[in-house]
Structures are given as structure tokens and as C-alpha cells.
Design a protein around this nucleic acid. Structure first.
Length: 275
DNA sequence: ATCCGATGTCAAT
DNA sequence: TTGACCTCGGATC
């Protein structure tokens, strides 16, 4: 599930369902028992997301204070929240954290990080993350400074959360395809014009992802191959050009889609469309 | 029943 | 660059 859009969607959903209310928390699996005990009986007074990091602020008193603890969650590769309306079912499987409010419950399993941090810890996390296309405070030029100074291939740079926060393996492949960029091109050769087109494209794609909960990058494609093919929806739920389509015909030119591990993940691209 | 991969990251080598 | 870690579900035997 988790690229940046998933996390921002969760921040929004958790605020809507639990915000301003007192919650009960526990850790059926046991690995977050202390944190859950700290949260229980307090009020969710803020949610925040930066890249793939999710935060909840919990306050005890009538108003929030600087000393309030923050819950920090990183879903990693397969962490997941499952959410529903009361009554909460008996937990099944390894539920790290369960939150129960008046209007909703949610269960967290499989996260890479689920911890209580201070406001200073949270600030340190923000400080090491690059600009997030989904945050209003994002400065795309900060990312451009890193990209344009680097000999590293753009397919790696886009996955580096210190360069750009929130892009993962699907958005990486898709945004490079949409801008005709070979993933192996060094950052310094990307071109400012290209970056100035890629950034707003990421903003638009990821904003749509927050709204829909999926990644769709193919919107209006009218090639014969595209018109004739049955609608193809990847397991992740969205419609894409190249992600996980290795050896299948490119939707634009029908060249078989290439694949290679870059930055430890399977990268997909069209060697004809992307140069 | 078992293997393997998955929208991720970190530490160790 | 590799392995470890977190957990589940789908493919394979």
C-alpha cells in the first residue's frame, strides 16, 4: 500500500475519524504495549504526514502542549492500517497497535516503525527528509539542487527520501515514463525544464492518489493498443504505464517493457519511449 | 505445507 | 551490495 499518497490519506482519515476525541489504545501483539498505554485515554489533537512518515499527536490536558508525545509510524514495505466502524472485532493476527474511538477503530500491522517520539525527534525527521510533493511547504528547488549536482542516476535519486520525500517504486517508474526520461540518466543531465515539468506532475498524480487511494497514471491514452486492450488494473489497484509490466508491450509504442533492479527495487521502463 | 514477493529502510559488509 | 526485519496472501507443490 504505502507510498506517500497512502500516508497522507491516512493522516487525513485518522484526523476525520479520531481527531479531537479520546481514544483507547492497546497492542494485541504486545510489541507496542508501552506506547499504547501512554496513548490510551488521551486525545488525538493533530495528525501530520511527511513523505512516508505518519504522525499523531496525543494530548492529555484540555489543550495541546509542546511536550505532548507524538506517535510516529512508518509502514515500510507491507505495513497496513485496517479501519472500521464500531464495534471493534477481536484482533486477529499480529496487531501492533489498535486504536478505538467512539466513531471508529483501526488496527496497525507490520510497520517498520511504530514508536512514541518527542516534538524534537519529529522535527529531526522532517529535517532529514526532502520536499514532499504533497506538502504545502515543499520547495521543489531543494530537490533540484540535489539532483542537478549529482552524477547518480535519476532512478536512484527519486527513491532517496532525503532528495524527495514520498515517491516510491510505482511513482518513480511512472513519472519517468511520463516524462520520457531514461532511469539511468544522471541527475545532473536531467535538465531544469524536465524537472519543472516532473514536479507539478508528481503533485497532481499524488494528490489524485490521496483522493482515490490508488495510483493511476494512465488517464487519456488513445493508441490502438491501448484502445483495444481490456482495462488493466495492477494488484496495487491502479492503472499504470510500466510498473510491473515487464516484457509486456509498452502502451504507447509496444516495445516490451524492460526491468532491472535499481536502488534495490524492481524498476520498469520503456527503452524506446524513455531516453 | 511451503515459498515467494510486496508501493521500504537500515545496518553490516 | 546484501541481509534482516516487519506480516500477509497468492502461487506452487
Amino acid at each position: 500500500m504505502p507510498e506517500g499518497h497512502t500516508i497522507h490519506r491516512l493522516a487525513r482519515e485518522h484526523k476525520r475519524l479520531f481527531g479531537g476525541r479520546i481514544v483507547a489504545a492497546d497492542s494485541p501483539q504486545g510489541r507496542f504495549a508501552e506506547g499504547a498505554a501512554l496513548i490510551t485515554g488521551s486525545r488525538l489533537t493533530a495528525t501530520d504526514a511527511h513523505g512516508k512518515h505518519l504522525f499523531h499527536r496525543y494530548s492529555r490536558g484540555p489543550r495541546a502542549t509542546l511536550g505532548d508525545p507524538w506517535l510516529h509510524v512508518h509502514l515500510g514495505l507491507y505495513g497496513e492500517f485496517r479501519t472500521g466502524r464500531p464495534p471493534a472485532p477481536a484482533p486477529v493476527g499480529a496487531v501492533r497497535l489498535r486504536l478505538i474511538g467512539e466513531r471508529a477503530w483501526t488496527e496497525l500491522r507490520g510497520p517498520t516503525a511504530c514508536e512514541i517520539v518527542t516534538a524534537a525527534d519529529k522535527a529531526a525527521i522532517h529535517a532529514r527528509l526532502g520536499p514532499d510533493p504533497l506538502r504545502a511547504d515543499a520547495d521543489p528547488e531543494r530537490a533540484w539542487k540535489r539532483i542537478s549536482a549529482s552524477r547518480t542516476e535519476i532512478g536512484r535519486l527519486l527513491m532517496d527520501q532525503e532528495v524527495l520525500a514520498g515517491v516510491g517504486n510505482v511513482y518513480r517508474a511512472e513519472v519517468l515514463f511520463r516524462h520520457g526520461v531514461d532511469p539511468h540518466r544522471p541527475g545532473r543531465d536531467l535538465g531544469h525544464e524536465t524537472w519543472l515539468a516532473m514536479w507539478p506532475d508528481l503533485v497532481a498524480l499524488m494528490t489524485e492518489g490521496v483522493r482515490t487511494g490508488r495510483i493511476d497514471t494512465v488517464h487519456d491514452l488513445h493508441t490502438p493498443e491501448a484502445m483495444n486492450r481490456p482495462p488493466r488494473v495492477d494488484d496495487h489497484g491502479g492503472e499504470v504505464y510500466v510498473y510491473r509490466r515487464s516484457a509486456m508491450p509498452c502502451l504507447v509504442c509496444e516495445t516490451p517493457v524492460s526491468t532491472e533492479v535499481v536502488a534495490g527495487r524492481n524498476l520498469f521502463w520503456c527503452s524506446a519511449c524513455q531516453s
